[in-house]
Design a protein around this nucleic acid. Sequence first.
DNA 1: CTTGACTCTTGACCAGACTCTAGGGTTTAT
DNA 2: ATAAACCCTAGAGTCTGGTCAAGAGTCAAG
Lengths: 144, 144
Amino acid sequence: MDTLNNPARLTIGRLSQQAGVGIDTVRFYERRGLLPSPARSPSGYRLYSEDTIARIRFIRRAKGLGFTLDEVENLLRLQDQGGRKSAVRELTERKLIQINAKIDDLQRMRNVLQKLAGECSGKGNVDSCPIIEALSNEDEYDGT
Amino acid sequence: MDTLNNPARLTIGRLSQQAGVGIDTVRFYERRGLLPSPARSPSGYRLYSEDTIARIRFIRRAKGLGFTLDEVENLLRLQDQGGRKSAVRELTERKLIQINAKIDDLQRMRNVLQKLAGECSGKGNVDSCPIIEALSNEDEYDGT
DNA sequence: CTTGACTCTTGACCAGACTCTAGGGTTTAT
DNA sequence: ATAAACCCTAGAGTCTGGTCAAGAGTCAAG
């Protein structure tokens, strides 16, 4: 990780600040295997090079796109070890499928709730509330 | 819960089978306060009336629509104690807002991933893979 | 030199919704 | 009568992604 001019001079506090995550998160990512064991100062302090900022940002961006840390680990391994592009693409496409499935799920929920909210006057008490009734009697939609 | 002819004759195994959940889930719902403490046989076995099947299905349908167990608890309380319709509607509308936010989030992710997947040939090794590069360099999109 | 800010390790804790284990007692079928 | 299948309790474990606490060592400023 220290190829050319990347001296390890950042303490964990500075690193985490620059990467935009908490100190504990950095140590957690290290334990998780997402970050390599860093160099240490004589007194045992972790010392990082600037590379690590980029690596943490990579992790955060991947997470922002819906990848789990396990999946991020795979992506990082592919990057570190020069894997095949097709592997990256496959991960991406699997994630797309999952995301689409979730969107479909949520849209189904939204449709039901919207319909029910539209049917409910919001006045009076709860007997004959169409929402409560829909939940009480198995009907049209199926809430898995 | 035993208003008219609803004798408590179901053991927890039968109940859970008919309701389509695991035995442990029934006990968990009881601890959680979603199900009232059931009658007991002389030897301490829980005994349920058919009502409870409906109640568990209510819970499952509400969960299927995205309500958390805390929210389901509220809905059940409104049902049990004859709350106002407006309270039910408010819960529903708050849930709708949450669901829409989640959908937006996922759509944003999908758009980015789709674009990236489209740019990636899938051939060769990972250097110059547009997906890896997008994750490496902060760009256009912002992965929270 | 002392104070305060920083870092270290190990290990516990959070939410949410279950799921399982251990070590019993009970009921039912053969 | 005895085995299989059921039920009981209390409490721990699961998953994900962190976050916090305790107790101790280290470093920079005044």
